[in-house]
Design a protein around this nucleic acid. Structure first.
Lengths: 139, 139
DNA sequence: CTTGACCTTGGACATGGCTCCAAGGTGTAG
DNA sequence: CTACACCTTGGAGCCATGTCCAAGGTCAAG
């Protein structure tokens, strides 16, 4: 008895997106064209679910679909490709690090200011202090 | 002798954006309507430069213009507003923390895998391992 | 007074990333 | 056999975030 096939609707639901989104990803080449049933329904492998989830996660982390595509476009793996895997991974790592640092600085000044406001909830200067936060985060 | 006025072109250049972007921000209410010269040129205060820089920084950190607007929309500061400053700031902080954590997890698994690949540059399993990275980052 | 760099406006266009729609085929439960 | 939920396609529409354009006004330098 064969498993019941993973069709687009179930895939979408499992991945937390809409079927249209899956088709859209296929159109732009982010997902490979899946096999089809005799009647033309798309049938997906488990791996596709992981892939879609990864795409969404990467997006949430601030990567564009283009960047995700670069990261994921690693088919066939000669030593040439291995080098490029490493290059892409290293580039991604560097980007990630720098995003991380900025985000940390922002969080720190935000949380410092928040603590200060809570200790001394002055009515009058809050706006000015918020501006200070803004500036400090923008430094 | 009055300072020479900060017009849109100079503001834009100083902030690293185009004049059109400044006008766009004004249209959507992200910047207040500036004063004008007799002939209708927009004249900006220094503070606007800081504000634009903040907007860009916040965007780079992954906040949408809508979110930036919520953060910045704090005019008038009665105690009511103070509470909302705190609420917004706390919300922003929470969002930032969670972004930060995801990004950290991603960076960590990326860098672990990178190190592993470098130590043992096998030809055959790289793609599979990359998939593993993907999955681990997606967990 | 001319030239050239700047400014104004309203509106069109672009890109990324979906999201929806209409018209129709498929498949299964009752 | 009928209902109903699901699938197909191509194409249109939508939101965010700009970006460009044309026609015209302003202003300082030469």
């Amino acid at each position: 008895m064969t498993e019941k096939p993973l069709l687009i609707g179930r895939l979408a639901k499992l991945a937390g997106v809409k079927p249209d989104t899956i088709r859209f990803y296929e159109r732009i080449g982010l997902l490979l064209k899946p096999s089809r049933t005799a009647s033309g329904y798309r049938v997906y492998a488990e791996a596709t679910l992981r892939r879609v989830r990864f795409i969404r996660k990467a997006q949430a982390l601030g990567f564009s679909l283009d960047e995700v595509q670069r990261i994921l476009s690693l088919h066939g793996c000669g030593s040439e490709t291995c080098r490029s895997v490493l290059a892409i991974a290293e580039g991604t790592l560097a980007e990630t690090e720098s995003k991380l640092q900025e985000l940390e600085r922002f969080r720190d000044s935000l949380s410092r200011n928040l603590a200060r406001w809570k200790r001394a909830p002055k009515r009058k200067t809050t706006l000015a202090e918020f501006c200070t936060l803004i500036e400090s985060a923008s430094g």
